[in-house]
Amino acid sequence: MKTFKNIIYWSLIVIALIQFIPVDRTNKPVDQKVNFVAVFNTPPNVKSILKNACYDCHSNETVYPDYAYVAPISWSIKNHVSEGREHLNFSEWGNFNRDLKKSMLQNSARSIKDYTMPSPGYIAQHPEANLTMAERTLLVNYFEDILKSERY
């Protein structure tokens, strides 16, 4: 029993101490001249879907939930956001080269079609991001229309 109490005691100490390891949750300022929704003058219904289902991980407009301030959960969330921005950052769309934009649009359409995006883990915490079939179709068509127009 004494060993169990020691394990609990030291576990609580470690959990308390890791709260002091800082996680940078600062969003870079968004330049509307290069922001995806501004560049394409995205219709309100598509813009709403993007903001609800994509922008937390794929833009510089991340809204961190309260639990994102508790380690080690904060580390995981920051890692997911960083990876999401690395693959696609709507806030910096205008800064990417043409080939990268084409690839990001193709990958986005494919990920939405095959239900890998939004990720199941994100949907579990954010039910509003669980896209209906109609919303998925709308987003995929929007991305494919941009690809067909070649004005990316």
Rank of each mutant, 00 (worst) to 15 (best):
residue 69 Y to R: 08
residue 121 G to P: 00
residue 47 K to M: 06
residue 11 S to N: 10
residue 47 K to D: 14
residue 133 M to W: 06
residue 67 Y to E: 09
residue 150 E to Q: 15
residue 112 I to P: 05
residue 38 A to S: 12
residue 59 S to R: 07
residue 81 V to G: 00
residue 11 S to C: 11
residue 139 L to Q: 08
residue 46 V to K: 01
residue 110 R to Q: 11
residue 1 M to R: 12
residue 129 A to H: 03
residue 82 S to E: 14
residue 102 K to G: 03
residue 25 R to S: 06
residue 56 D to E: 10
residue 87 H to L: 13
residue 62 T to E: 07
residue 139 L to P: 01
residue 88 L to Y: 04
residue 125 Q to Y: 08
residue 10 W to D: 08
residue 1 M to H: 11
residue 93 W to Y: 06
residue 149 S to Q: 14
residue 42 T to Y: 00
residue 118 P to M: 03
residue 97 N to G: 07
residue 24 D to Q: 12
residue 79 N to I: 03
residue 90 F to A: 09
residue 25 R to K: 13
residue 130 N to V: 03
residue 81 V to C: 00
residue 57 C to S: 07
residue 13 I to Y: 04
residue 111 S to R: 12
residue 4 F to W: 10
residue 140 V to H: 07
residue 104 M to A: 11
residue 3 T to R: 13
residue 56 D to M: 06
residue 51 K to A: 12
residue 13 I to V: 15
residue 22 P to M: 06
residue 22 P to L: 11
residue 32 Q to T: 15
residue 140 V to A: 10
residue 69 Y to H: 11
residue 80 H to T: 14
residue 92 E to I: 02
residue 25 R to Q: 14
residue 121 G to K: 09
residue 20 F to L: 10
residue 100 L to A: 09
residue 23 V to N: 06
residue 103 S to F: 10
residue 37 V to K: 08
residue 100 L to I: 12
residue 99 D to H: 09
residue 90 F to I: 08
residue 76 S to P: 01
residue 87 H to M: 10
residue 96 F to N: 13
residue 23 V to R: 07
residue 23 V to Q: 08
residue 119 S to T: 14
residue 7 I to G: 02
residue 25 R to L: 14
residue 63 V to D: 10
residue 60 N to C: 04
residue 70 V to Q: 03
residue 96 F to V: 08
residue 142 Y to T: 04
residue 116 T to V: 14
residue 97 N to F: 03
residue 56 D to A: 10
residue 38 A to V: 02
residue 45 N to M: 11
residue 39 V to M: 02
residue 126 H to T: 10
residue 82 S to D: 15
residue 115 Y to Q: 13
residue 83 E to N: 13
residue 26 T to C: 04
residue 54 C to G: 04
residue 2 K to M: 09
residue 128 E to R: 05
residue 28 K to R: 09
residue 105 L to M: 06
residue 33 K to H: 05
residue 78 K to C: 03
residue 34 V to M: 00
residue 77 I to G: 00
residue 45 N to W: 04
residue 11 S to I: 02
